[in-house]
Design a binder for these strands. Structure first.
Lengths: 195, 195, 195, 195
DNA sequence: GATGAATGAGCGTTCATTCAT
DNA sequence: TATGAATGAACGCTCATTCAT
């Protein structure tokens, strides 16, 4: 990737995150990138291509790394300890989202308007559910929750924290360690695993 | 409100929900409303004004009805029973979101791009926290959760259910009664109120 | 047709005839028409649509009026006299081309680049040949010319005069009566009808 | 001429003939030539210069070879036999156009838009008329045609055949020998030279 | 109030041309 | 000599907004 292309990408991330894809003119991206407008179109087929190249790789990894191999590793390493599994997974997702915060923001903002992105994320979600369900239900079965409920609750709690800490109030000085602890204990009790 | 104005509003809701505010031309709204394009500008100062008039009243009510008086009523009526409070509140919020699903969708989609809306919702949130915190902490204090954590978890779980059931998979045949039960039991256990 | 639309059409005819379709920017048409650029696109779907609407009706009439009914009329009226038929047809085609000189010019200029126009004119030509061949061969058969040769020669001679007198040297003061006489006599001799 | 320059010229001929000068981007020429876009501008001052260098030499030769010396040769060799003169000239022009068909096509297509080309061809035409007129009128005088009419008819018939056989229907399997015979006999009769 | 033709700034994109390598 | 990334003016077209009717 040439430096010009990189600077276009960086400028686009900032612009799309701040004002949204539709409201960002390509000339603004060009100016912020210190590049002529035409240069954008040498490197990307069009504005939409630029968006998708930014966000597609992410869409395949927001929920879990592409192949979900990671999840299997975590489970194996944790030797089946559900608390460790949750804690590890949360920490990894938090790290991922923190690292790509503006891109995650763009992804969330544009998801409603681009079917391709929805399909990509949906596919990820289905794969994740298939893998996570047995592990979760093995422990949480006692609480009388149906599998999809259990997973949805987990996703809500995890997603909620990420949205609060990364997007709604990113400057509130979050102590991830502490918050993850609180979340995990809450989940364990909620699932009836701990009292 | 004249019938023309009403049909403009209805058309705008559909269009903004489907394609987003920026991607919707006023001519599309006019056509769907069965009205001349100019008529929109007789009733609204501009496209943005149309959006805000649609969504502003909602922004002041998504979290809780405007004055939050409702919350006090619920608490009073429930005679302090936290389970009843939660259940009632969830049912009311669900009813509200179901009734205004497309508008809620627009609000969520446009929140990142319109400071005014963010301010409105933020203000609501602060008021809600101020009122809900003492009630919630009175019961959930035992679990070692800080007030903001407890409220965030509640918001995540409630919001998660609404987003899943209203936006992500609105046609999945949700049994609200059943789901609210599951959520409330989960929350009670998570807060350490029930074992 | 509103006056604005008419002035757009008139401006487009001048511009396309002078500089060609590809080399004419829509802004030039707008300026010459005394109209905003956007107005063009209210009346026409795009630049190409503007060209085709100008030139399509012509393409269906350059060779002979649309249904070719005219040709039958001429033949009937001339009571089979081939000289009268030729003379009348030439005069009518000349009148037609004179009346639409700039449009004919545009048609000729753009024919090589727009398959639709080629198809239209080709279709006309086939119809014309089908109708004209028997009439022409009835008289010209003696000269040993094959039908397509006879028709091609007629078309060349007629088309040649029109191109010279309308496009190459429109200001040379042509005496159509005299020229048609010369052409008809030339053709009659060439076909072996007169010595 | 280096091989790169030659391949640029060849690519330009194909592109300009197919899509026209204005509608052909330089990048297309470069790609078809297997050359970098910049290379075109090392060998030609610009796109227009490329067109003119292609077509200028032709413009000076379409009607008759440059100095028209050829015409004198033909006349001398034919010992004044007008039929032989016509036949030979037609065959030579046909051979020339066949050899340079795409270039001739470009010339015809661009003639209306480039004054320089028009001037070049016009000059040729004037020279040709000056030379051909006495020869033609010596024989065709009897028919009562004025010199310009006689020459125009010859040009129309010859040009007509070339356009039909080279451009409109190049794949129709033309028998030039046969067609030239038909044309010459037609002309001779038309000019009143043969009955 | 309602219309819809008209506007023109602004959009995404193309392309002939330049120039550092 | 040849390259191809970079340029930026110019293009066709869209759209929120105005205003005469």
């Amino acid at each position: 990737m040439t430096p010009k292309k990189r600077s276009i990408v960086e400028a686009a991330v900032v612009c799309f995150a701040e004002r949204g894809y539709e409201a960002t003119p390509t000339i603004d991206i060009a100016r912020r990138a210190g590049v002529a407008e035409g240069t954008i179109f040498r490197h990307f087929e069009g504005k939409k291509d630029l968006l998708l190249r930014l966000v597609r790789p992410l869409a395949a990894n927001v929920i879990m790394p592409a192949a979900l191999g990671e999840f299997a590793d975590v489970v194996a390493e944790a030797k089946g300890d559900i608390e460790t599994i949750m804690r590890t997974m949360l920490h990894r997702r938090i790290a991922f989202v923190r690292r790509h915060a503006p891109l995650v923001r763009i992804l969330l903002q544009e998801l409603p308007f681009h079917a391709e992105l929805r399909a990509l994320v949906g596919e990820q979600a289905i794969r994740f559910v298939a893998v996570a369900e047995p592990v979760l239900m093995e422990h949480a079965g006692a609480a009388g929750l149906r599998p999809m409920q259990a997973i949805r609750l987990f996703a809500s709690v995890a997603g909620g924290y990420l949205i609060f800490s990364s997007i709604l109030a990113p400057d509130a000085g979050w102590d991830d360690e502490d918050e993850v602890n609180a979340i995990v204990q809450f989940l364990l009790r909620g699932y009836g695993i701990r009292s």
